[in-house]
């Protein structure tokens, strides 16, 4: 059901449209079962960045105080894009992997499932 409004039209751009990022995109990524870090992270990145470079140089360093972060092997990751199973090629770019602006990526790493047996 559309919004009800006063006047002739109700039409505004999305506040987070890709046009506002000067060629970059926003990407949202969560390493599941590492909940001492409370929420998925937000990144502004160039779409031609290689996915592996992002994971190793940007993403993993964002979990510095988690004991799993030194041990992670992203090639073993089990991935989801928009909550659907997904198999990225880590050596290709975001764009080549179909990761568009505001994509939501989750990864679990079998064998590295956080602390205390509860994904902390």
């Amino acid at each position: 059901m559309p919004v009800k409004f006063v006047g002739d039209s109700y039409d505004f751009p999305c506040a987070n449209q890709v046009e506002n990022y000067g060629g970059d995109i926003n990407v949202y990524v969560v390493w599941d079962h590492h909940l001492i870090y409370c929420a998925p992270n937000t990144y502004r990145l160039p779409p031609d960045m290689k996915f592996r470079d992002f994971l190793e140089q940007v993403f993993a360093p964002d979990y510095p105080q988690h004991p799993d972060s030194d041990k992670v092997d992203w090639d073993q990751g089990v991935w989801q894009l928009e909550n659907e199973p997904w198999e990225p090629d880590l050596d290709k770019s975001f764009a080549e992997n179909g990761i568009a602006h505001n994509s939501f990526i989750r990864v679990t790493t079998p064998g590295l499932e956080g602390m205390h047996g509860v994904g902390n």
Binding site: P13, C14, N16, Q17, V18, Y28, V30, D32, H33, L35, C38, A39, P40, E82, N83, A100, H101, N102, S103, F104, R106, V118, G119
Partner: peptide, 27 residues
């Protein structure tokens, strides 16, 4: 609110749902 909330039946997994409008995804 930051998406710290977890799934209704899984308190160990963040819940993040997506809707697309005018070609832009929203979480």
């Amino acid at each position: 609110i930051p998406i710290f909330h977890t799934m209704p039946d899984d308190p160990l997994m963040n819940c993040c749902l997506v809707s697309e409008y005018k070609g832009t995804k929203h979480q």
